[in-house]
């Protein structure tokens, strides 16, 4: 499709919240000239550079890999660098910060709760014994790689948390990305950490906090499919509960 370089004008409504002066957010509307190659993030940057320097939002890489620029656009969580203004024209855009997180200012949310959850799932290889360097590399077959590869693509952008009503209703829920990363390590043939992650996975706030709404997997920009990671682990958690995992001698000890 040839790029249309003619400039049109689109209306962008942004949620504004200043913690020092506001008790609740309001919306400000901006008229933004755009061409077909402009992302929503570039629209926000136009506003900040040309119309209102006080508009606050996060961004970094502009290429859908850093995971910083997640926003709700018309109620759908997206990476704003990965979404184009042309797809909304001639309608307006309503941009809000990601759902289910406290708003610090304008479009910026507080991610701390997620960071705690990410840490709780021990998102690194857990092994019983450190393998000496001299023993050579950890070899993996392509099949073993495939078992976790898709789940390792997570960029922690939090779109899945914004898409998850269960997290919104009860922020104790460990949530989609953290549980998908938990599974990513459990599914790794080099990892022996099932037992140390079992407490998180088996809890009410673990996989059992999920009711398989499935929207997390719809909005994931990296096709991680957290809903699949969580729900196949309901089976594993149930087998653990009934002692079947021990019988199958899966996941090692301690």
């Amino acid at each position: 499709m040839p790029i249309d370089t003619t400039t049109r004008t689109i209306e962008i409504e942004c949620l504004r919240y200043d913690p020092q002066t506001d008790t609740e957010p309001h919306f400000s509307s901006y008229q933004v000239p755009f061409s077909d190659d402009m992302s929503v993030l570039e629209g926000l940057q136009y506003i900040k550079d040309q119309l209102d320097g006080s508009l606050t939002f996060r961004w970094s890489c502009r290429m859908a890999i850093c995971g910083s620029c997640g926003q709700e656009v018309n109620g759908v969580p997206v990476l704003s660098c990965h979404t184009f203004l042309r797809d909304y024209f001639p309608h307006k855009l309503r941009i809000e910060p990601l759902n289910n997180f406290p708003i610090i200012r304008d479009l910026v949310i507080d991610q701390n709760d997620f960071l705690d959850k990410l840490e709780s799932v021990k998102p690194y290889l857990v092994t019983k014994l450190e393998k000496p360097l001299a023993a050579g590399p950890h070899l993996q077959t392509p099949q073993q790689l495939n078992r976790y590869y898709a789940y390792s693509q997570c960029i922690n952008c939090l779109l899945c948390y914004a898409a998850c009503p269960q997290y919104g209703l009860n922020s104790d829920f460990t949530g989609p990305a953290a549980l998908a990363l938990l599974h990513r390590y459990n599914a790794d043939s080099r990892d022996q950490g099932w037992q140390v992650r079992a407490e998180v996975i088996n809890a009410d706030a673990g996989v059992w906090g999920c009711t398989l709404v499935g929207y997390c997997s719809e909005v994931c920009p990296k096709a991680v499919d957290p809903a699949h990671a969580i729900n196949q682990n309901k089976v594993n958690s149930a087998m653990d509960f009934f002692g079947v995992l021990k019988l199958m001698n899966k996941g090692g000890t301690e």
Binding site: Y17, P19, Q20, D22, E24, P25, E96, N99, N100, P102, I103, I104, R105, V108, D110, N112, D113, L115, D116, P165, G168, L169
Partner: peptide, 22 residues
């Protein structure tokens, strides 16, 4: 959280209500 808020104003965040989410 053991992670300190990066916001200088720290305290007052706003939480969007969940009512009618669905």
């Amino acid at each position: 959280s053991r992670y300190r808020s990066t916001a200088k104003t720290a305290a007052r965040t706003y939480m969007q209500p969940m009512a009618g989410w669905w």
